[in-house]
Design a protein around this nucleic acid. Structure first.
Lengths: 357, 357
DNA sequence: CTGAAAGCGCTTACAG
DNA sequence: CTGAAAGCGCTTACAG
């Protein structure tokens, strides 16, 4: 047994240590300390089945004792792939973005992967080139695409070409199942319709999100389908196009509330626009829900900060994010709760009420 | 000249390429193509002055022609430092978080650095150990700490120990200048006070944020100082402690508005709480600003979504983030706009008005 | 089941 | 001003 094989030649004895006098243990230290080759340590790290149990236990003990964690950078270089997950997004809503990040982080926790955020602009001429440079340069393990980036088939095509795994989050299945987490916004639209119908409303209007968001169409589709079941059909002028922003909600509200006969209920593609309609109603001297019922979508914080608090449809953004990350990493969940947990659910508050007499 | 030195032996001829039939150029390809050693290419990449102009130009031409970009992972391994910047935060406000991220990304753009997000919980028993593991494992180039993590001296101490550069974002200078971006919340508090005074108010109350946030004290301090200049002093009961949340704003509003005599103006530590006070006033049948003036702080989106839109103090979060990232990377700005651009500014909207007759 | 050699794409001493 | 050697901390073939 050589000197270099004795326990005393441990990392702490090193004089090349950084601040604090300690150097992080490397695979070589662990190998030497466990009396095996670094290749065998590597096998343990990578959970190879071809290691004798006794050997594995010895190595794991040394790893635990030294608090060794393999260097992701070195591992990445050898693997030709980093341990980084990218979130590429253009969603303008801060709460959506933060919830999604938290969800992704939930799914990544304990895996050793980290989250790199990458906002983008779909209308930029260098949009695709930027994404390609980002993914290739960082050798991303995979990326998660929330709407509306997720709805751009060019991005999926590009990712396929450069061999980067990806998960698209969207309101409808627009790729192979292994690349999708589906939010089922359609169901949410239907829930809003049934709630509004149950309150007796018949003169109903819809403020849609921008056509560039798939969710706009799904929320509307689900809403119209459920109305149809009750024998109601929205005419073209019952539908006004907004932009998912507060200001567009005010503008659309101004248009709808000036009509006569006035709609008694307005379903809005998201909470921002619903808050805008509230504003518009106030300007027009109309009470909510006394004169008009307003229903939103998302159940973001704004839904509770306005007056009256919004009846809305909650989307489990954080849960969806967690599932996307787990799917990307190939984590198998004991119970496949996928369908149920991504479904939206109605939250009844005070902005909806019976049809005015 | 050997065959391997001819242009035809370029990366595209490789048959080991990934999907798309291309392999990314490496430093070896560039060296061969330019007829120099890879060390010299490395010098060009790292902007070493010890390269003849002619040589440099030749290499740069080859780099441009092949669209070569050095592998950050390999570079990081050799440098013992990654090209990753961490944002370690516990701020609960989504808009703050997103604005800060956008600002950091502004400052990082074009530098080759990427942003890794890392929310944390200051009350967790593993708080410091988690940060240490994160920073050391990823060999972070540096980290940015927004409030309230930035206010925790244990974090700064830890970062110093492990030799990781950091920038603390806070409302007051609590570290060496090279580690600080200061937001000067104190000035914002004073601006709010002067505005309220100019409207003739004398019965004034303050809803403070949680004591764990330094900004709570700064905003209050600036507010009280400016009141003092006008000969006004807040008594203990004029100050109510909230928690920076909408709900706490409602609760504090309920307390203050039930008093008699009632305050004619309430300055709130942030917009969330101001929105809560609006809610409370509505419940009490009080009009804003007819019966009571309400002023917030931050100018986040909620300030414009409530009714009436809030008079508030805008903090340039995104700008501050950009400056933090630039400072971390050591970017020198032509004009040192530091002081002026981090200063808050008053935004007058409709929630403030003259003292009721 | 285990290991010695070569390599991932860069940089740091060390020469010249 | 430029380069050959060794090394960063891992993994992938290839042997045995």
């Amino acid at each position: 047994m050589t000197a270099s094989n004795t326990p005393s030649s441990n990392p702490d004895d090193s004089e090349t240590g950084v601040e604090g006098g300690r150097r992080r243990a490397t695979i070589n230290d662990i190998a030497r300390l466990a009396g095996v080759s670094k290749k065998t340590v590597s096998r343990v790290i990578n959970q190879s089945p071809f290691v004798r149990d006794e050997t594995r236990e010895r190595i794991e003990a040394v790893i635990a004792e030294w608090g060794y964690a393999p260097d992701p950078q070195a591992r990445g270089l050898a693997f030709r792939r980093s341990f980084l997950i990218g979130m590429i997004y253009d969603n303008p809503n801060p709460q959506y973005v933060v919830n999604m990040q938290l969800g992704l982080l939930d799914g990544l926790r304990g895996s050793g992967f980290e989250l790199v955020v990458h906002p983008c602009d779909r209308s930029s001429p260098t949009f695709l080139a930027d994404i390609r440079a980002f993914v290739e340069r960082q050798k991303l393990f995979g990326v998660v695409l929330p709407p509306s980036v997720s709805e751009d088939d060019r991005v999926a095509k590009l990712l396929n070409e450069i061999g980067c795994s990806y998960i698209r989050i969207a309101s409808v299945e627009l790729d192979k199942p292994e690349h999708m987490i589906v939010g089922h916004d359609r169901l949410g639209g239907a829930q809003a319709a049934r709630h509004i119908l149950s309150l007796g409303h018949r003169r109903i209007a819809f403020i849609s999100g921008p056509a560039t968001f798939r969710s706009s169409h799904e929320r509307r589709g689900g809403f119209e389908d459920a109305l149809a079941e009750a024998g109601l059909k929205l005419s073209d002028e019952d539908i006004v196009q907004g932009g998912y922003t507060f200001e567009s909600g005010v503008a659309c509200g101004d248009v709808l509330l000036a009509r006569s006969p006035r709609p008694t209920a307005i379903f809005c593609g998201n909470d921002e626009m619903a808050a805008g309609v509230l504003q518009s109603a106030r300007k027009a001297g109309l009470s909510v829900p006394g004169d008009v019922t307003v229903v939103g979508f998302d159940d973001f914080q704004i839904a509770q900060a306005v007056w009256p608090p919004l009846t809305t449809v909650r989307t489990p953004t954080r849960e969806i994010g967690r599932m996307a990350a787990e799917k990307l990493l190939g984590v198998e969940r004991p119970e496949p709760r996928d369908l149920t947990t991504t479904e939206p659910s109605l939250v009844v508050r005070e902005s909806s009420g019976p049809v005015p007499a």
